[in-house]
Design a protein around this nucleic acid. Structure first.
Length: 182
DNA sequence: CTTCCGATATACT
DNA sequence: GTATATCGGAAGG
């Protein structure tokens, strides 16, 4: 995971993100690096973004618009402020509990946004900084379904107004990742 | 279907 | 005071 965010981001597609009985397969991500006006790390460390400058494979969780939790996977060597935002996932396990947490959501809307998937999985500030690759981690990132590099779509990042020209959003259709087992 | 808007922590001007 | 890596509900067509 000691790779730059733009390399790590497409490699995260198809990975399984699990917390308790709930899990998803990552199908949309965005890369953010230090030399990037759209990145929280652009102006250096702050109380909020310190985790971005720490070791790779850890979770950077922040509150967006004062309302929604968003989950990133820290990348790059320690000291570099890089991360990959998990933007969407395919339902993989624990669907009943995820629906309980988001009762109004339809199937295609359950995990199709960074704030939606953290709500469904129950991820919040308590998970900021944890090692997603550690054995027995509360929130764990593991190999899921392999995704062919040729099938990855690249596009402009969403919801930003700076550095819009950098095509650092990577995605595959949720339906291409297979069906939930549980 | 579409547009508009409120919520509101954190960081910056 | 203003902007932001968002979402869901209301209002209009």
């Amino acid at each position: 995971m000691t790779r730059s965010a733009t390399i790590a981001a497409p490699e995260l597609l198809g990975a399984e993100l699990r917390i308790g009985p709930c899990s998803l397969l990552v199908c949309e991500v965005e890369a953010y690096i230090e030399d990037d006006e759209a990145s929280h790390s652009f102006r250096g460390p702050t109380p909020r973004n310190t985790v971005m400058f720490g070791p790779p494979g850890h979770a950077y969780v922040y509150l967006c618009y004062g309302v929604h939790w968003c989950l990133n996977v820290v990348t790059g060597p320690p000291g570099t402020g890089e991360a990959v935002l998990i933007r969407a996932g395919a339902i993989w396990g624990g669907e009943a509990l995820m629906r309980e947490r988001r009762p109004k959501a339809r199937t295609t809307d359950l995990l199709n946004g960074p704030g939606k998937l953290t709500a469904a999985l129950g991820i919040n500030h308590l998970h900021n900084g944890i090692d997603l690759l550690a054995r027995g981690a509360i929130v764990a990132l593991r190999p899921g379904i392999p995704v062919a590099p040729e099938s990855v779509e690249r596009s402009a990042r969403v919801g930003i107004t700076k550095a819009v020209d950098r095509p650092w959003r990577y995605s595959v259709p949720a339906a291409s990742l297979g069906r939930p087992v549980a």
